[in-house]
Nucleic acid binder design. Structure first.
Length: 336
DNA sequence: GAGCACCTGGCG
DNA sequence: CGCCAGGTGCTC
């Protein structure tokens, strides 16, 4: 489920906690979360233990950890993290690790301050009370132990996400490869992903021209991660609503001005979402502290079938296209 | 491009 | 029971 703003919230939360730390242990509770790893669960452990995290980078919805050997040299492989539909990374200081995992009784101490994730102070919420039925810790799949006694937990209800290592390759345009990346290297498994709309190196007019060369529905083009990345079902619908465009309009039918406007709407709506910690409807998406973002209350289209459009009052509609819901205003968003 | 596979749930 | 869910990758 997490789209670009949600993954960026995780990237910002993870960096201050993990960069500079050495991975001292890897506990794989469900090997399916490591199924993309060459060599499987034991391969992942071998690749990670003893390495030091030097940066957390992100392109689109793909997040990766840059790793160095004890001598400080880059290992040449990144730890990839994809959250899929339901993945979370949660950081736990030593004292916050559940009691049954604590090495010694009585080790519990007041929790350290959580990492800053750039949420405005007035939007911070208390940690959710975790009921047994929806307890995300139930879906803990992989735990990374760091050398300061803390852990990073990968939690994933639906198992579409995962952790695996991927060798670094050079970005073909020679520019800094991604947000948070120190250089032009990126994992091979992210090399087919286009730059996202937050990326300084993304050329929106060029992406607009590429959209206009395709006859596919504009929404499916926005969701195709090899044209422009980071956009998922929620923000595609929100951007199309903001730009007054119909999801089924063929790319070829758009003027350059309209195609460019849609891309700028994607960037604008995702920037507003990032500023309030992303979108979450429930405990399934949370930041590294386990807290939810606040953009769900700002959604204009997604999930609002039957509700009045805030611009014109017309009841919003829902259509299913290639298995995914499209929410839109039938009056403001005309097919042209 | 569409369709399905990969999964575990919550809800009606 | 059937339908729904924030994603991606592979096949036709």
């Amino acid at each position: 489920m997490p789209e670009l703003p949600e993954v960026e919230v995780v990237r910002r939360g993870l960096g201050p906690h993990a960069v500079g730390r050495t991975i001292i242990g890897v506990e794989i509770r469900d090997p399916r979360s490591a199924r993309r790893q060459a060599g499987g669960a034991s391969g992942l452990e071998q690749m990670l233990v003893g390495t030091t995290v030097t940066a957390i980078a992100r392109r689109g919805k793909f997040l990766w950890w840059r790793l160095a050997d004890p001598d400080g040299a880059d290992t040449g492989h990144a730890l990839m993290t994809h959250l899929g539909m339901s993945g979370q990374l949660r950081v736990r200081s030593r004292a916050a690790v559940p009691a049954h995992d604590a090495a010694s009784p009585g080790a519990a101490a007041p929790d350290a301050a959580p990492p800053d994730v750039d949420l405005p102070a007035d939007l911070r919420a208390p940690a959710p009370s975790e009921g047994p039925a929806s307890d995300p810790v139930r879906h803990l799949r992989i735990r990374l132990a760091l050398d300061d006694g803390s852990h990073v937990d990968f939690i994933d209800q639906r198992l579409f996400g995962g952790l695996w290592t991927s060798p670094l390759v050079t970005a073909d345009d020679g520019r800094t490869s991604a947000w948070g990346s120190p250089d032009d290297l990126l994992p091979r498994d992210a090399a087919h992903i286009a730059r996202d709309v937050f990326d300084d190196a993304a050329d929106l007019p060029a992406i607009a021209r590429a959209i206009r060369r395709r006859r596919a529905p504009v929404k499916s083009l926005l969701l195709a991660q090899d044209l422009v990345s980071g956009i998922g079902n929620i923000y595609a619908d929100e951007a199309l609503w903001a730009a007054r465009a119909h999801h089924a309009t063929p790319g070829q039918a758009l003027s350059q001005v309209r195609a460019h406007r849609i891309l700028r709407a994607c960037r604008a709506v995702m920037e507003r979402a990032l500023a309030v910690g992303g979108t979450s409807f429930d405990a399934l998406y949370v930041n590294v502290d386990g807290r939810s973002g606040y953009f769900a209350r700002s959604l204009e289209a997604y999930g609002r079938e039957g509700e009045p459009c805030s611009r014109c009052g017309t009841a919003l509609r829902r259509q299913v296209r290639s298995g995914r819901s499209c929410f839109f205003c039938p009056r403001c968003q005309r097919r042209r």
